[in-house]
Design a protein around this nucleic acid. Structure first.
Length: 189
DNA sequence: GGAGTGATGACA
DNA sequence: GTCATCACTCCA
C-alpha cells in the first residue's frame, strides 16, 4: 500500500493522495486491534476478505480510513495514517487552502503533507458512509498504482501510535510503516 | 499541556 | 441505562 495513490471522486473532481504512512492491525491476538475482542457491529467488516473500507470515528471527531486485507473470517486491516497530496491543483477544495496547507502557490513537501489519519480523511472528505464499501471507482474511493516510484522509496518501521493500552508486546511491534524518502513523492499524479 | 467530541462496548 | 475509554488534532 505504501506509495500507492488513494483517489476520491467528488462530482467531476478527483482528490489524490500518495500514501506515505500506515499501520498494520493483524488477526485475533493483536491486542491493539479492534478485532481482539471478537466480532462486534463496528468491526465486523475487518473479518471480510481484502479490499473493503473500515471507517470509524475516534475522539468524537476524526474518521479513520482502513482497508481490509487477508482471507475471509481472518480480521486484519491497514490503517492509512498519512500521505502527500498529488491532485492536480485545480481540483483542490477551497477549504483546504484556508487551513494547514497555506495555499496553492507554495508546494513543498511539508505543506502538502497530510500527517495524521484525521487529516487524511478530512482532506479526502471521507466519512462513515464509506464503511463496508469495496474500494472501487464506482464507490467514489479507490486505489491506483504509480509504478514510477516503486523502486525508489525507502521505508522505516516503528511502533504503532496511540496503542499503549495493548500492553508491551503488542504496542511495541514495529507495525507502523513510513516512507522516509521525500524525493519525488509530491509529483502530481 | 489540555480541551474538544461522540460512538463504542462493557457492565448493571 | 450509565460509564470510561478512545487507531487524534489543534492551540497554547
Amino acid at each position: 500500500m505504501l506509495g500507492k495513490i488513494i483517489v476520491r471522486r467528488i462530482g467531476k473532481k478527483r482528490l489524490a493522495v500518495r500514501i506515505t504512512e500506515l499501520e498494520i492491525y493483524d488477526g485475533f491476538k493483536d491486542l491493539a486491534s479492534h478485532a481482539s475482542k471478537g466480532q462486534t457491529p463496528r468491526n465486523k467488516i475487518m473479518f471480510a476478505e481484502g479490499g473493503y473500507f473500515y471507517i470509524y470515528l475516534v475522539y468524537g471527531m476524526y474518521y479513520m480510513i482502513n482497508i481490509t486485507t487477508g482471507e475471509k473470517n481472518y480480521p486484519s486491516a491497514i490503517l492509512l495514517r498519512g500521505g502527500t497530496i498529488v491532485s492536480k491543483l485545480k481540483n483542490l477544495p477551497t477549504y483546504k487552502l484556508e487551513t494547514n496547507l497555506n495555499g496553492p502557490a507554495r508546494r513543498n513537501f511539508s505543506e502538502k503533507n497530510l500527517g495524521g489519519p484525521g487529516k487524511l480523511s478530512k482532506f479526502l472528505q471521507v466519512n462513515k458512509k464509506f464503511n463496508e464499501k469495496l474500494a472501487r471507482p464506482k464507490n467514489g474511493l479507490w486505489f491506483e498504482t504509480d509504478d514510477s516510484l516503486k523502486s525508489k522509496i525507502k521505508i522505516s518501521k516503528t511502533p504503532r501510535i496511540g496503542v499503549n493500552y495493548a500492553g508491551p508486546i503488542w504496542s511495541k511491534k514495529k507495525w507502523r510503516y513510513v516512507i522516509t524518502q521525500k524525493h519525488n513523492l509530491t509529483k502530481i499524479y
